[in-house]
């Protein structure tokens, strides 16, 4: 009995020690590249394929000059866009340093046999913070889109306010849980599916962290929809539900 206990302890320990390590190892296979390094590569006209993993709407709105628009979710559908030469340098990026889309795409590319795959550190915001410019193909005019906090949305839902809750996160994320009553149209499919949205109600957009719903709202507002967005996205919604929104989380410098 004691032996079994010891063995299971050992297994648990090994899982604990090596489980995360193997995940870590997977992430390490993809290297991170700093904005300055990327700038240098582009200046040197090095042969790199720069891939924006956000939705096509976002990518056309503004992106690093010379980027390929290849939303993470459509990776499998558009394999033809990737270069035939597996030795070519691929650099992925997305809308923030918190988003995992670029890592997901980069890992898929590695699985396909691409040998030199990197992810831009800090994503597009990191690039801008480093002081570099972006280019637009089809800029969506910015509108004054009202944003509401989670507490207000909760009140609206409780009071039966006639709103249409639109969750623009990926199907996977939505499947893992969303706000009750929300309808999922992922951002990358919004340009093809928006005509299904109701025009007679206020549409409240919800995303992961509040970084993407603004542009989606502007896009829909341009089409004549009445849009509002949830400030802080699902993350602030979850925190508001838990009521731990204001607990200090950091550990100092």
């Amino acid at each position: 009995m004691r032996k079994i206990g010891g063995l299971s302890m050992l297994i648990a320990l090994a899982t604990f020690l090596f489980g995360p390590a193997s995940l870590w190892g997977q992430q390490q296979a993809v290297t991170e590249i700093a904005p300055e390094q990327l700038r240098r590569l582009l200046d040197e006209k090095a042969e790199v394929v720069l891939i924006n993993t956000m939705s096509a709407i976002e990518c056309r709105d503004h992106a690093i000059p010379g980027s390929l628009c290849l939303p993470c979710e459509t990776f499998q559908e558009r394999l033809d866009l990737l270069p035939a030469d597996k030795g070519k340098k691929l650099i992925y990026y997305c809308e923030s340093d918190l988003c995992l889309r670029s890592y997901k795409s980069a890992n898929k590319a590695r699985e396909m046999g691409y040998r030199d795959v990197s992810v831009l550190k800090g994503g597009l915001p990191g690039w801008k913070q480093a002081g570099y410019t972006t280019a637009a193909q089809e800029r969506i005019p910015r509108k004054a889109i009202p944003s509401i906090k989670a507490s207000r949305l909760k009140k609206w839902l409780e009071e039966g306010e006639p709103i249409f809750l639109l969750d623009i996160r990926s199907e996977d994320a939505f499947r893992q849980g969303g706000i009750k009553g929300a309808v999922n149209i992922p951002f990358y499919r919004l340009d093809r599916l928006y005509q299904d949205l109701p025009l007679d109600r206020r549409i409240v957009l919800v995303d992961e962290r509040g970084f993407r719903s603004f542009l989606a709202s502007c896009y829909l507002a341009r089409k004549g929809y009445d849009t509002t967005r949830l400030f802080g996205g699902m993350e602030s919604w979850r925190k508001a539900l838990k009521g731990t929104n204001r607990l200090p989380a950091g550990q100092g410098k």
């Binding site: 918190l98 906090k149 509040g210 802080g232 993350e235 925190k239 200090p248 950091g250 410098k253």
Partner: peptide, 15 residues
Amino acid sequence: RVYHTALDKYPAEAR
């Protein structure tokens, strides 16, 4: 600043 207060992402810096 990029202190996205709703996310408590930079609690120390924001505070």
